[in-house]
């Protein structure tokens, strides 16, 4: 093997490795539960053209295998454990999935919608939404206590 080939091989591998392992920060996360061989929720909306992390909790006492030809994913979820499945980036559309061990009951759909339509699950936004009224209530309570 020539020196050129070795160097080229190294460069190609390093290039792909760097590209592959580049951190894709701030991946939106969605949670799904598997109970009595049913997915909750059975329909999950995710933003288009975005890689998302789907965390599936298997509350059953038997293993399940998440399977989807549409999503090109297959993953075993052990009983009473959680499993992470990375999905996307995908164009808008409906992508079906099912549990291989209970295909008649364990069924679900990933609905990929344009970004603006997705319920905002960003933690900072959620924090603002929930803490602002709490803070306001707290101030109001203080004022009431102060007056009395």
């Amino acid at each position: 093997m020539s020196l050129f080939s070795v160097k080229l091989m190294q460069s190609v591998i390093v290039f792909f490795a760097l590209l592959s392992f580049a951190s894709l920060a701030n991946r939106p996360e969605f949670e799904v539960e598997l109970k009595n061989h049913l997915f909750y929720p059975a329909e999950i909306e995710i933003p288009a053209n975005t890689k998302v992390k789907l965390v599936i909790y298997n509350r059953d006492t038997t293993p399940e295998e998440f399977d989807s030809f549409d999503l090109n994913r297959e993953k075993v979820i052990f009983p009473q454990k959680k499993s992470v499945i990375f999905i996307g980036p995908l164009p808008p559309g409906r992508y079906k999935f099912f549990g291989e061990f209970n295909p008649n009951s364990a069924q679900g759909t990933i609905i990929v919608v344009p970004k603006k339509s997705v319920a905002d699950t960003n933690i900072e936004t959620l924090a603002l939404v929930y803490t602002a009224p709490l803070a306001a209530n707290s101030l109001l309570l203080k004022e009431v206590l102060h007056v009395n």
Binding site: S20, A22, K75, F86, G88
Partner: peptide, 11 residues
């Protein structure tokens, strides 16, 4: 080596 879809490519 990597979970399917976790990174830009799977290895």
């Amino acid at each position: 080596m990597t979970d399917q879809g976790e990174y830009w490519a799977d290895w």
